[in-house]
Design a protein around this nucleic acid. Structure first.
Lengths: 167, 167
DNA sequence: TCTAGATAAATCGCACACGATCTAATCGTG
DNA sequence: CACGATTAGATCGTGTGCGATTTATCTAGA
């Protein structure tokens, strides 16, 4: 009811101060904040990852493979919360770039295993500086940094709730 | 240093418990949490918005126009943090669907003004139930709800920092 | 054994999202 | 008034993302 709505919650901020949602500030506004933060992160990542020729999800795949190699497509889907119809073409692009290998599993021909090529392993090591680059590029304030652990916990919990709500 | 990392932080969770980022848990993991939460929200929105035939950004445009009509493309870009190259085709789709009108501004022929059609106004009123639908579909817990105002503040502040870091 | 279901990826169509670039219109300064 | 600079949208190409479907393989049960 009486929560001081920060002015950045866009759909409401349009007209002066009418909270139009009958259920309170949730749903619309937390969605939008996540959406907008995702856009902003993606844009900054584009710039930071540009010199590696990688997109953000491609970067995530390399980080996952650096931690452990020879993963199946399904494992990567689960890790990144993506569907195979998104990952398959992405992985083919990484293969075309010479960064990963895609081989049918001998034991189960349905499964495709993804491994790092030599070049991919080198790049996976090189991108270890990306988190630091992001912090530097963002010029993150101490205040923001202090709130991040709680932010992550809340986001992960929320995302888990949403994922469980789907068929 | 010693923050109990929830297991959902994917790129690290791959190998047992090695925090690979030299700068601490930021950058990589908060990005990923936002990314994953955005994916989850988007998927749930797809299902909720399906009966209206709208996507999430299309829904945002209608909500913005419901609050105030006859906006310029640039105003909508600013509100939604999108570029014209994203909004222009989206608005053309909404126009093709008969929901909005696109007219050149008489005073400044460079400007295109977006208005709601009669059908668009009806739909904009109908989608007022979407926030409640989302809450219902998500089965949001009381605990999550309590943390949302702080979550929104942190996300908006973070997004603002990121946006200011770009050219 | 042989086939009905289940499973893993892949394919298809559509809609964002962005960087780079283009066009048309307006503005600013001489 | 003129003309370079700016501004508002639009266009183009690439890369996600997802729902629906398809293909190939594997597994269970009669």
């Amino acid at each position: 009811m009486n929560n001081a709505q920060p002015s950045a919650s866009v759909p409401a901020a349009a007209s002066a101060d009418t909270p139009p949602a009958p259920v309170g500030p949730f749903a619309d506004y937390v969605c939008f904040s996540i959406y907008a933060a995702g856009l902003a992160f993606n844009r900054l990542y584009k710039h930071v990852l540009d010199r590696f020729g990688l997109t953000y999800p491609q970067y995530l795949v390399l980080v996952a493979l650096r931690a452990r190699d020879d993963r199946t497509v399904g494992e990567l889907c689960e890790l990144l919360f993506l569907e195979s119809n998104t990952l398959t073409p992405l992985l083919k692009r990484l293969e075309a770039a010479g960064l990963v290998t895609r081989t049918r599993d001998k034991a189960d021909e349905r499964v495709v295993r993804i491994g790092l090529s030599a070049q991919g392993r080198t790049l996976a090591a090189d991108i270890a500086c990306v988190p630091a680059d992001m912090v530097a590029a963002a010029g993150t304030s101490e205040q923001d940094l202090a709130e991040l652990p709680q932010l992550i916990r809340t986001l992960d919990s929320l995302a888990e709730t949403l994922r469980k709500a789907l068929p």
